[in-house]
Amino acid sequence: MTRKLAEISDALARTPTVTRTLRVFLSHSVSGQSWQEAAAPLQDGASMEVESGQAIPAWTFRVEGRLLDVGSATSRQNKTPARKFSSFVKRLVVDWDQDPNVYAQPNMVEWQRGPGVTEQDGFEVKRRGDQDVNVRVLIQLQHTPERFALAPELERVLDIHEDTRTNIITALWNYIKINSLQDKVDRKLIRADADLRPIFNADTVNFHDLPQLINRFLQPPPPITLNYTLTVGPTAPSGMQAFDIDIETEDVSLKARQSAVVLSMTSESAKGLAALDDEIASTAQAVRNAQQKRDFLLRFAEDPARFVESWLASQSRDLEVILGNDHGVKDEDLKRSDFFRLPWVEEAVAVQEGLRVANALQPPPGR
C-alpha cells in the first residue's frame, strides 16, 4: 500500500489523459432568398427593408461542438461543468468558394486562440449570397499535452506519424538502446547509424543534445478538414451534419480519484499501516517457528530411536567444539573453508576468548 501510494503521488505530477470523442456539428440557415420572398409576400412598406439591407439574400454558417460523455449516469450527475467547444480548438478557419468581388466581402474567416480569450460553444459566419457554396472547415486541435507531427526523415526511423514530445524522445531512446548505439566507453555519446546520420548531421552526438535535435523535426500536426455544401435553395437540408474526432484530453475523474486517495492518507492512516506491517512480521515469524517445530516432530515420528541418537551425537559434538576440545573436530573438516563459516564458530571463539581472559586473571599458585 505504501508503494502504491508513492506511485499515485508520482502520477499526480503528470497529467493523466484519456481518448475522448469530440463531435462537431455543421449547419446553416438562409434569409432574404427569392424563394422565401415568394412564399411570404411583402407587406406595405417592405421596399424600405431592401434599402436598409434586411431583405438582401444572405446565409449563416455555424460550427458547433461538444465532448461526448461516455461515463455512467452517476458520473454525469456529479461531473464538473462541461468544457466549451472552443477550449478544444487552437485555430479554426472557415473558407468557401464564393467570388469575393460579387459582394465585396472576404471568403475566409479565422479564429485563433490567444491570451484572455472567452470560451464559447460554437462559431457563426454570416455572409450575403444567393448561390450555393462549398465550405471547408480547418480545425487545429488544442491537445493536452501538446502533440506534434514528425518530419519524414524522423518518421521513417521511429515509425511514428504524430505523438507527444515525451513519447517521441522515448521512442528515439528505445531505438538507440535496441541498436546498441551508445558508446562503450563514454555512455553519454550516441553513435549515429545510417538512418540517424542525416538527422544528427554528425557521426556522434551528446545524449543531452537529443531534445534540441528532435525539435528541428517536430511541426504542428495537420489540421482536420471538414467539407460542407451550403445550399440556399428551398431544398436546403433543415438538419445538421455531425463529425466525430478523437482527441486526447485530461482525465479529470482519474486525477480526482488519485487526489482523494492521497488526501485520505493522514498520519493516523500511516500509523495504521505501520502497525499492520509489524503484525505481518510477527505473524510471519510465528509461522516460521511453527514450521521448524513441525519439521522437528515429523523427523522424530519417522524413527524416534535413530533421531534421538543423531540428535545426542550432534549436541555432544557441538559441546566439545564450544569447549575447545580438538577431539570433536575431524581432520577432514579442517580442510574445508566452509567448516569455519558454521553458526557455532562465533560462539566457540567467544568462549575460547572468555576462557583465555579468565585464565589470565587467575593469581599464580601459592599466592
Results as ranks from 00 to 15, higher is better:
K293F: 01
E124Y: 04
L154F: 00
A82Y: 04
I190T: 01
A40D: 09
Q182S: 09
D195R: 00
D132F: 00
E119Q: 09
P222G: 04
K335Q: 11
M265T: 14
D338N: 15
W173R: 00
E279C: 01
L218I: 03
T225C: 11
L298N: 07
V135Y: 07
V252L: 13
M240F: 06
D209L: 07
D331Y: 09
Q33F: 11
T17C: 11
T235G: 10
R288Y: 07
D163I: 04
L273H: 01
Y175F: 07
D69I: 02
Q362S: 14
R317W: 03
A305I: 14
E248H: 08
K293H: 13
P364R: 15
P81E: 05
S310F: 05
E332R: 12
D10P: 02
G114T: 13
A38W: 08
E162P: 00
Q131A: 07
H28W: 02
K90E: 03
V89W: 06
Q54T: 11
G116T: 08
L312G: 00
G32I: 06
T80L: 15
L172K: 06
R288M: 00
E51A: 12
S9R: 15
E7N: 12
R23I: 08
V18S: 14
L181A: 00
V137F: 05
D333T: 05
E155G: 03
S316I: 08
K126E: 04
L276F: 05
P41T: 06
R66H: 11
L263G: 04
E155K: 11
E7C: 05
L210W: 00
A6S: 14
D95E: 14
E64T: 14
N107C: 01
K79Y: 00
S34L: 12
S29A: 11
P304E: 05
V24S: 06
Y103C: 06
Q120C: 08
A360I: 10
W96C: 07
G129S: 07
T15W: 04
A149C: 09
L276M: 03
W59Q: 08
L154R: 02
F307H: 13
V349S: 10
E309T: 12
R113T: 10
D338H: 15
L181N: 05
R341H: 13
